[in-house]
Simulated assay, not measured.
Amino acid sequence: MSNVIGILLDRKTYLGILRNQTGYEHIDYYNQAAVELGMTPFYMCLKHVNTKSALGLSFENKNYTLKRLPIPKVIHNRAMTLSPMSQKKLQAIAKISQVFNGQNRHDKLHIHRLLRASANSSAFLPHAMKYSRENLIKAMKREDSFFVKPTNSSVGKGIIKVNAMSDGVWQVWWSNQLPRQLVEQQTIDFIDRKVNDQRYLIQETIPLSMYEGRPYDLRVSVQRGDKGQWGVTGIAGKVAADGRHVTNLAKGGEAVRCEKLFLNNGFDPVVKRKQVEEVALQIAESLSLQIPSISDVGMDMGIDHQGAIWLIEVNGRDQRYQYKHLNLNKTFYRTYETPMLYAKYLLSK
C-alpha cells in the first residue's frame, strides 16, 4: 500500500476502463507515469467506496485486477461530485486521505470574488457581478458588450452575449442560434427568461485578439507537480467557429497552437508565452491560498488587441484533450504525469 495512488473517476469513466472507453480521460498515460515513478494506480468510483476501503481496479504488471483495498493515503480526484450525497462522501474520505483537487467544480462568481480580493490577481480580471435584472440594466448603461454566463457550468453551455448597436438596439447571441436584434426592454425580458432564477453572472467582454476574423482565447493547464510547486504544463489556443462567440471545442471551436496565434497578431511568441505563464502562476498561487486542495486547473485566458492578458475563468477539471487535437503528445502526456508527480510528493511527506 505504500506506493498506491488512488485515482477517483466518474462512474461511467471507471466502468469504461476494461473496455478502453474512457472518453476524454487517457488512462494509459496515468498507467505509464505510475510505472515510471514506481507507483501503483488504483482506480475507484464513489459508488464502491466507504470510509475504510474501496473496491477498484489496480494496475499492476500491465494488467488490471479488481480488488478491495484500504483507502489510499493519497487520492487524485477526477470525479465530478455535484450531488450533496457524493460531496458528503468525498468529504468523509478527505478526513482519512490526502485528496487533491477534491472540489473541482467551482462557482465562477465565487472564484472571481476570491481573486478580486488578491492584489496579485485582481488586475487580470474583467469586471463581473452577480446576475439580477437590476444589474443587467446597470450593465446595459455602462458596457457596450458583455456576457451573461451560468456560474456553474462548462463547455460553453448557457452563455449569452450582448452587444450594443445604434438607436437603442441590442444584438443578442443565444446558444447556436443566429443573433437577434432587440430593443432594450425586449433584451432585458429575453435574458431574464433565459436565466429564469438560475445562478448567472454578468461579465465585461474582453476585446479578444483575432485569428482569421475569429476571436480566440487560451487554455492554460496549471498543475502542482514534483515538490508541490505550481507549473504551467501546457498552453493551447482555442479559436471560435465562424459567427460564434464561444471558443469551446465542444461548441465547434478549433484548437490552434498558441505560438501560431501570437505570431499572427504580431506578438513575440516566446515573450508572450512567458507572460501568460507568469500570470497563470500568480493566479494559481493566489487561488491556492483560499482553496488549499486545488492543484490541477485549466485556466481560460484571453489576450486583447493591445496584448494585455486577462483571466476569463478557471476550470477545476481540465479535460486536456486540446493537446491531443494539436498532436502535442508530450504535453498531453505531461498533463497526466504531473499530478502523479504531485501524488508521489504527497505520499513521501
Rank of each mutant, 00 (worst) to 15 (best):
5 I>S: 01
6 G>K: 09
6 G>W: 04
10 D>C: 09
18 L>D: 03
20 N>G: 07
21 Q>Y: 04
27 I>G: 07
28 D>A: 08
31 N>E: 15
31 N>H: 11
33 A>T: 11
40 T>Y: 15
44 M>F: 02
52 K>P: 00
55 L>F: 07
57 L>K: 07
57 L>R: 06
70 P>V: 12
70 P>H: 10
71 I>M: 09
74 V>Y: 08
78 R>C: 10
80 M>N: 09
81 T>W: 02
86 S>R: 08
86 S>I: 06
87 Q>F: 06
90 L>Q: 00
90 L>I: 02
93 I>T: 00
93 I>K: 04
94 A>Q: 14
94 A>G: 14
95 K>Y: 08
95 K>I: 05
96 I>W: 01
97 S>F: 10
98 Q>D: 08
99 V>N: 01
101 N>H: 02
106 H>D: 05
108 K>H: 07
115 L>C: 10
126 P>Y: 07
130 K>W: 03
131 Y>K: 00
132 S>H: 01
133 R>S: 13
134 E>V: 13
136 L>F: 00
138 K>W: 05
146 F>P: 02
147 F>S: 09
147 F>A: 08
148 V>N: 01
149 K>P: 03
151 T>C: 15
151 T>F: 01
152 N>W: 06
153 S>V: 03
153 S>L: 12
154 S>K: 03
156 G>H: 09
157 K>R: 15
157 K>S: 12
164 A>M: 13
165 M>S: 14
170 W>M: 10
174 W>V: 15
175 S>W: 05
175 S>L: 14
181 Q>C: 10
183 V>N: 14
185 Q>Y: 10
187 T>S: 09
190 F>R: 07
191 I>F: 06
191 I>L: 01
192 D>Y: 03
193 R>T: 14
197 D>V: 09
198 Q>E: 11
199 R>N: 15
200 Y>S: 01
202 I>E: 02
202 I>F: 00
202 I>K: 00
202 I>D: 02
203 Q>G: 00
204 E>M: 05
206 I>Y: 09
207 P>H: 09
208 L>N: 04
208 L>V: 02
208 L>F: 05
210 M>H: 14
214 R>T: 06
216 Y>E: 06
218 L>Y: 06
221 S>E: 15
223 Q>V: 12
223 Q>D: 13
225 G>M: 04
226 D>N: 11
230 W>G: 03
230 W>K: 01
230 W>P: 03
231 G>R: 11
234 G>W: 02
237 G>V: 02
241 A>D: 09
249 L>K: 14
253 G>E: 06
255 A>P: 05
257 R>C: 12
257 R>F: 08
258 C>A: 13
258 C>W: 08
259 E>W: 09
260 K>I: 12
265 N>P: 06
266 G>M: 04
270 V>D: 11
271 V>K: 15
272 K>S: 12
275 Q>R: 13
277 E>K: 14
280 A>S: 08
282 Q>S: 15
287 L>P: 07
288 S>F: 05
288 S>W: 04
290 Q>I: 04
292 P>A: 07
295 S>K: 13
296 D>V: 12
310 W>C: 00
315 N>Y: 11
315 N>A: 12
318 D>G: 05
318 D>W: 02
320 R>C: 13
321 Y>P: 08
325 H>T: 14
329 N>L: 15
331 T>D: 13
332 F>K: 01
333 Y>G: 06
333 Y>W: 08
334 R>A: 14
336 Y>P: 04
340 M>Q: 08
341 L>D: 13
341 L>T: 11
341 L>Q: 15
347 L>W: 07
347 L>A: 15
348 S>R: 14
